[in-house]
């Protein structure tokens, strides 16, 4: 069995983002880049599945669409424990473009399980995983909080409104994962970091592809009005404000 984990390369989630070029581009000065948090959890779960010999998993591959600048992030995924990596050498244009490049690069590789994070912390689209599944003609399950393999069958837990549903899905499949899939992201050990240097990282060139959307410009959120403080000895005043000023309760 082979697992593919799609990873995105994003600014550290504590970054105070700024934009340049008439708000058209992200100002990358000083930004720390990391593996998208959900993708990091996906990778952790993939490695946990591989650690269990009864699951019979030969390899965990990571794939990324991006330029060479993302290679430290990909090496980090290898250091955490992925066996090999694939980078499609293209500047992402939109989700459809990224999903199409991934689909094109992996369609002949016959992965049994493809894991994607439910969103990337930069564009918050929740889009690439489902698109990839559709392009590959695989079933997909979204909002996944657990992936197990039992006697070669995939048992996937997905969140539904007001609860959870455990589904059995025929492989190959795409699981689009959220919180809960793994407890904490796995951290690279020194041995892993050394080994990552020599693990295979294949670079392929992109195919010609149109995008469906263009990001025209960014905007910063409007500053909120200053906080109005209420006397801690008299919180009833808060109720009064919520009722008569905010008119919300």
């Amino acid at each position: 069995m082979k697992i593919l984990v799609c990873i995105s390369h994003v600014p550290d989630t504590t970054t105070k983002v700024k934009f340049v070029d008439d708000l058209k581009k992200l100002d990358i000065t000083g930004i720390q880049w990391v593996i998208n948090p959900w993708d990091e959890l996906s990778l952790t779960r993939a490695l946990e599945l591989k650690d269990d010999p009864s699951n019979d998993i030969q390899s965990v591959t990571v794939a990324h669409v991006g330029l060479a600048g993302a290679e430290p992030t990909i090496r980090k995924a290898l250091a955490i424990g992925a066996d090999d990596a694939l980078r499609i050498n293209a500047e992402p244009r939109d989700a459809f473009y990224v999903a199409s490049q991934l689909a094109e690069a992996v369609k002949n590789e016959s992965y049994d399980l493809v894991l994607c994070g439910i969103e990337s912390s930069d564009y918050n689209g929740s889009t690439v995983g489902g698109m990839l599944a559709e392009l590959l003609g695989y079933p997909s399950v979204s909002s996944v909080s657990s992936v197990r393999i039992e006697n070669g069958r995939f048992l996937i837990t997905r969140e539904i409104d007001g609860g959870k549903e455990i589904v059995n899905v025929v492989a190959p499949l795409v699981a689009i994962v959220q919180k809960g899939i793994a407890k904490e992201p796995r951290i690279a050990a020194m041995r892993g970091i050394m080994m990552a240097r020599t693990k295979p990282l294949k670079v392929v060139e992109p195919v010609e592809m149109e995008s469906f959307t263009d990001l025209v410009s960014f905007e910063m959120p409007k500053p909120r009005a200053a906080c109005k403080f209420v006397d801690p000895e008299n919180p009833g005043q808060l109720i009064d404000l919520l009722q008569n000023e905010a008119k919300i309760i």
Partner: peptide
């Protein structure tokens, strides 16, 4: 909707209908 169901369907529909997706 951009809820669990919408997130599961909209990307597939986007590819199926060659329709650009604006999410959320």
């Amino acid at each position: 909707s951009n809820n669990n169901t919408g997130k599961a369907l909209a990307p597939r529909l986007s590819v199926r209908l060659k329709a650009g997706l604006g999410s959320g």
